[in-house]
C-alpha cells in the first residue's frame, strides 16, 4: 500500500492521509495539474470525472462533472486558494449548479495537498480535508460514491493495460 498513515478526527471533522510514491514531486504534481491525468483518478470507477475547466493558479476556478451509471452528472468545482508547484495546493471543493455557479446549499470542503521529496525519486504527499459538518459529508458522499468503492483494482488493471497499448 502506498498510503502510509491515516488520521481521522471525528470532533474536528478532518481527514489526513499520507501516501508515498516512487516518483519525483514534479511527477506527483502533474497528477493534479494535468486535467487528463486528474480525470483518471479523481472519480471512482463507476463515477468517472470530466474536467471542463482547469487552471491551478491562485484565484482560478476548476469545474468538473462526474458521470454515474444511471447517466446522472453531478457537478463540482474547486476554488484555488494556494498553489505552489510542485509543493502545495489548497482549494475549496464545492457542488455546482447546472450553470456552474456555486450551489450555496452545500457547505464546502477545505482541502490542502502538500508534496515533498523524501529521497531520490521518492515523494510523500499529504492530503488533508476539513469537512464543514456531518450533513455536508453525507451530501458529498452521495455525489459519486458507489458500493464497493475500494474495489478499484479492476480499474487499475485497466489503466495499466491501456497505457501499455498506448505507449509510444
Amino acid at each position: 500500500m502506498t498510503v502510509t498513515a491515516v488520521r481521522k478526527d471525528p470532533v474536528n471533522l478532518t481527514l489526513t492521509l499520507t501516501a508515498e510514491f516512487d516518483a519525483t514531486p514534479e511527477r506527483v504534481w502533474e497528477l493534479w495539474s494535468d486535467p487528463r491525468q486528474l480525470e483518471r483518478w479523481w472519480g471512482p470507477p463507476m463515477y468517472p470525472a470530466t474536467f471542463t475547466r482547469h487552471d491551478l493558479a491562485v484565484g482560478s476556478r476548476v469545474n468538473y462533472y462526474m458521470t454515474g451509471p444511471e447517466g446522472d452528472q453531478p457537478r463540482g468545482y474547486w476554488d484555488i486558494l494556494e498553489a505552489e508547484p510542485p509543493r502545495r495546493l489548497a482549494f475549496r471543493d464545492g457542488i455546482a449548479n447546472e450553470d456552474w455557479s456555486a450551489n450555496a446549499d452545500f457547505p464546502r470542503i477545505d482541502d490542502v495537498v502538500t508534496i515533498e521529496a523524501i529521497g531520490p525519486g521518492r515523494t510523500r504527499m499529504e492530503f488533508q480535508a476539513h469537512y464543514p459538518s456531518t450533513a455536508a459529508m453525507e451530501q458529498y458522499l452521495a455525489m459519486g460514491m458507489e458500493p464497493g468503492l475500494t474495489e478499484a483494482v479492476g480499474q487499475i488493471d485497466a489503466i495499466l493495460a491501456e497505457d501499455a497499448v498506448g505507449a509510444r
Binding site: 502506498t2 510514491f21 458522499l141 487499475i156 497505457d163
Partner: peptide, 29 residues
C-alpha cells in the same frame, strides 16, 4: 462522524491507488 470519515478514507484510498497506478504506468511507458 467517525463512520463518515471512514467512507472518505475509502474514497481517498481509491484515489491514491489510482494515482499510484498512473505513475507506474508512465514509468513503464
Amino acid at each position: 462522524a467517525q463512520r463518515l470519515l471512514d467512507q472518505y478514507e475509502a474514497l481517498w484510498r481509491g484515489r491514491i491507488d489510482r494515482m499510484t497506478s498512473l505513475i507506474e504506468a508512465t514509468k513503464e511507458t
